[in-house]
């Protein structure tokens, strides 16, 4: 019973603390909100770019060109071999006739040129689609290297440069977001730690009184931690609202861009709550330890 009472009173104290909003807190919430907005913009850009690149990457094929005049069983052996890779999702055999037909279609008006050919210069080939998770330059390069040594295989090609460039771009964005994230999150902890420290100092008479009547550390510090978490949440919500508005404006010029999913936003807000709580925990521990 007493633990429940304590919980209730601590909650009371926390809400009492929140009701006593001060101008300095509003300013720091605005500053944090805008820092978080910058971070969110970067992450949203990254999200959209990596989605575009992911989609493109999924369309990437590894082409295995076969020697001419192979026996059917050699071709089948290659096919089985290809299916043996864990990273391969599907394999399509493209006979040289079909390849020529596709070539002709692609040329369109100039297809008369093809008709003039006496022999078909194109080889039989396999088109490999990779599993989504393995659509990386590294994995494509790895299997291409192996397949190239097989009997009956003339050549293996894939959009090496393209894939690798895409990966580099995404990696660059990730690194930027990561660095920026660390900087912004650390400053959130720092700023909240500071505003809560001021709040502690202005309430230190009350803290001393609570100590005198036998309040536990928990009873004293939880309301401050609550205050810090609350500031984190408000800053995060502010940032999300600002981002949403900019998204609405931006998507008029760039239709098709995506926004964060709801669970991602919830996670972000929760993270900011945790950061705020951590910041105020630091401040109050420092004060109580003195």
């Amino acid at each position: 019973m007493s633990a429940f009472n304590e919980f209730k009173y601590i909650l009371d104290e926390s809400f009492r603390m929140l009701r006593r909003r001060k101008a300095s807190n509003i300013i720091s919430v605005i500053i944090m909100g805008f820092s978080l907005l910058v971070l969110l913009i970067f992450i949203l850009v990254t999200l959209n770019i990596s989605m575009v690149i992911d989609n493109a990457r999924e369309e990437m094929r590894v082409y295995v060109y076969l020697e001419n005049g192979l026996d059917q069983d050699v071709i089948e052996r290659v096919r089985t071999g290809l299916y043996n890779f864990d990273s391969v999702r599907g394999v399509v055999f493209v006979p040289r006739e079909e390849a020529l037909e596709r070539f002709r279609e692609r040329l369109g008006e100039g297809s008369a040129l093809v008709d003039d050919l006496e022999t078909n210069p194109l080889p039989n080939s396999f088109e490999i689609r990779m599993k989504r998770a393995y659509s990386t330059g590294e994995e494509m390069g790895r299997i291409a290297g192996k397949i190239g040594d097989w009997d009956g295989v003339e050549d293996v090609r894939y959009g090496k440069d393209w894939v690798e460039r895409g990966e580099k771009i995404v990696l660059g964005f990730y690194m930027t977001d990561f660095t920026l994230g660390i900087i912004v999150f650390l400053s959130i902890v720092f700023v909240i730690s500071n505003t809560v420290r001021l709040s502690i100092l202005s309430g230190r008479k009350s803290i001393e009184i609570l100590k005198l009547v036998g309040a536990t550390n928990r009873y004293i510090q939880v309301p401050f931690i609550f205050e810090g978490a609350f500031q984190g949440v408000i800053s995060a919500v502010l940032a999300v609202i600002l981002l949403w508005v900019s998204y609405k404006v931006g998507s008029r010029y760039l239709p098709g861009i995506t926004f964060f999913r709801l669970d991602g936003i919830a996670g972000f807000v929760a993270l900011c709550a945790v950061l705020g709580a951590a910041g105020s925990y630091i401040a109050i521990r420092k004060y109580l330890k003195r």
Partner: peptide
């Protein structure tokens, strides 16, 4: 404990000032 300078919570009523001692003891 009682002091010369009273040490009351300025932003709370008489009732709340007394109640706080009972609250920290976990009483309902």
């Amino acid at each position: 404990i009682v002091f010369q300078d009273f040490r009351l919570l300025e932003d709370r009523t008489v009732f709340e000032n007394v109640a706080v001692a009972m609250k920290v003891s976990g009483r309902g």
